[in-house]
């Protein structure tokens, strides 16, 4: 019995489909949600959001948000979310470097916090982009 997953951001609906499992980075740690999971409400942090369907895992990079698990469906309200294969690895690397520079040159505490958050988000994007790369290489060999 699959579970229906919907991922939405403030800008648009990103994903809506039946899936077999969802692995999400919550603030309390990574959780895997299988069908018939108990109702759950949790806060997401930045990390890799994995969706398993038919034995295949699709990675997404999520920067934070909320997840509501209901008996038959899951709703993820993401701050920003990107499919791994939409992320350009070299551009993600540049973004990480930029965020690092920004953190190094931060003057106020607020700038620092902003830069930290940005850096964390960009690191996750890069990581997720690399998961996808690794998966592809394995698939080829």
């Amino acid at each position: 019995m699959p579970i229906h997953l919907k991922i939405v951001t403030a800008e648009r609906e990103v994903f809506a489909d039946d899936v077999d499992m969802v692995s999400a980075p919550t603030r309390e740690g990574r959780v895997g949600i299988l069908p018939r999971h108990a109702p759950l409400l949790s806060i997401l942090t930045s990390g890799e959001l994995g969706i398993v369907k038919g034995g295949e895992r699709t990675p997404f990079a999520v920067s934070g948000g909320f997840m509501q698990v209901l008996p038959t469906n899951i709703i993820i309200l993401a701050d920003t979310v990107e499919r791994a294969d939409e992320i350009d690895e070299s551009r993600a690397e540049t973004a990480v470097r930029l965020a690092e520079e920004q953190r190094a040159s931060a003057k106020s505490e607020q700038d620092m916090a902003l830069a930290e958050a940005k850096l964390r988000k960009e690191m996750v994007r890069l990581q997720v982009a690399r998961i996808k790369e690794a998966g592809r290489r394995q698939g080829r060999s």
Partner: peptide, 23 residues
């Protein structure tokens, strides 16, 4: 529904509300 809240109901609410206003 009897939700499990992680971390807690209050914490989720206090994060959710500003986001709601921003939306």
């Amino acid at each position: 529904l009897d939700f499990t809240y992680e971390p807690s109901q209050e914490e989720i609410l206090s994060e959710l509300l500003p986001r709601y206003v921003e939306t």
